[in-house]
Design a protein around this nucleic acid. Sequence first.
DNA 1: GTTGACGGCTAACGGTGTTAGCCGGATGAT
DNA 2: ATCATCCGGCTAACACCGTTAGCCGTCAAC
Lengths: 189, 189
Amino acid sequence: MSDVSSPPPISARAREIVAAARDLLEGEGPEAVSMRRIADRIGIKAPSLYKHFPDKSAVENALIAEGMAELAAALEAAEAGRAEGEGRAGGVAVLAGAYRAYALAHPDLYRLMSGQPLDRAALPAGLEDRAAGPLVRAVGGDADAARAVWGFAHGMVVLELAGRFPPGADLSGAWAKGCGAFSAEPALD
Amino acid sequence: MSDVSSPPPISARAREIVAAARDLLEGEGPEAVSMRRIADRIGIKAPSLYKHFPDKSAVENALIAEGMAELAAALEAAEAGRAEGEGRAGGVAVLAGAYRAYALAHPDLYRLMSGQPLDRAALPAGLEDRAAGPLVRAVGGDADAARAVWGFAHGMVVLELAGRFPPGADLSGAWAKGCGAFSAEPALD
DNA sequence: GTTGACGGCTAACGGTGTTAGCCGGATGAT
DNA sequence: ATCATCCGGCTAACACCGTTAGCCGTCAAC
């Protein structure tokens, strides 16, 4: 019963491959992560990669799992670190700050994680729920509210990463406005 | 004052090219819109496209301009169509509904429009502002608030398009929650 | 009538993901 | 000790991608 985690990729070579893929992704952007570039980086030829992963998307799924685990850890740390004096409101703002910080620190990985229809079967069981946990707890378990603030945070982050806001826009103001709106208790609900 | 729009692409052939590109995009998805497939569809060879557009991104920019104009029109129609009795709150919800409806009706075009760093020089002058207009008016000209609800709407739409919410999730509830949060007047601001 | 631009074309380059098939070495079984 | 098996490399190749170079027919203008 040692390690019945998710899919097989546990061999040293496999880990080396996803590490190379991540270096390329975070160092040179998404178009740099090609099977030939990955193979080059670890001193083998591209077709040999297929002895370790069925296709490129499997390598990407490993990267996605890695990123989601890191993001979950960052959110859990933010959740644990906030002063107990803060109400639900502060919780949302702190989590949103941690979310944004992770995305800005790993822009290309974040886009890879969030830009495509998750292959949930290729993910460690429970990872997605673990990443969502801190936020749903911060909004008191209201699924609608959790989805709304997730949508807000994701949208803000992705627009910022794509440079869609005006050059000198005061984004912290917009974040504060959003977090404030979501922190007010529902008036007549 | 007939038509001093933006860049050159006004020839019949050029319009035919972007029409073919749009058919491919909306009919078979983004990976189907290749220079060879576009050319095939109008009965010429791929290299001939370069007599009308400098590169593929120029064709995409034409698609983006087309989509943004349509989205702007949809938002303006929603703005004009709402009952005058509604306050600012209703305005935001109506606009968000129109925004979501356009994105769901043209998912691949919307992703093309919103997923990359806008080449503003390639866009008709004033188009971006025109698309943003209805929303900033709905929030009373507060730029921070406008960016926050834009982030919310974009995030919700893009997560929905990517199938990131749980299969049977009640998204209309999350949308209502978000619009409600952004419609309450700022308490102590 | 000549010139020149327009808008097609073919051939080609370097890149992509991926498959087929070969082959050496290590490992396990008889 | 010999034999079989499988693992993990390899080369060659396919079909596609965006893009460039260079050729050529048509047609309008001077």
